[in-house]
């Protein structure tokens, strides 16, 4: 299979990149997911980008809330309280 360029009738790469998170969340309809997988089988560029998305998720997971905090203390405390409340439900 030629993985250098996608087939003529394939999903466009610019559409694929907008769907990566939905694909990883398994939130795509079956037919769209099938199109994505077909596209991934043919396009090295998108295949690489999907791998990079996974790398980003892994690297981001190494950070803590304090590392990436750009909110004030009060807003953060409220957010944490809300999240705790949700967890208790």
């Amino acid at each position: 299979m030629n993985r250098d360029l996608p087939a003529d009738s394939d999903m466009a790469c610019k559409d694929f990149v907008e769907l990566i998170t939905s694909y990883l969340d398994d939130a795509l309809p079956h037919d769209v997911r099938a199109d994505v997988e077909k596209h991934l089988g043919r396009c090295d560029g998108c295949h690489n980008v999907l791998a990079q998305w996974r790398t980003i998720i892994t690297l981001t997971g190494r950070l803590t809330e304090a590392d990436v905090d750009n909110t004030d203390e009060i807003t953060r405390d409220r957010l944490i309280e809300t999240l705790r409340g949700l967890r208790r439900r």
Binding site: D4, A12, C13, D15, C43, D44, G45, N48, Q52
Partner: peptide, 8 residues
């Protein structure tokens, strides 16, 4: 149309 100019 709509594909990469340069493959990442």
């Amino acid at each position: 149309p709509g594909h990469w100019v340069d493959l990442p």
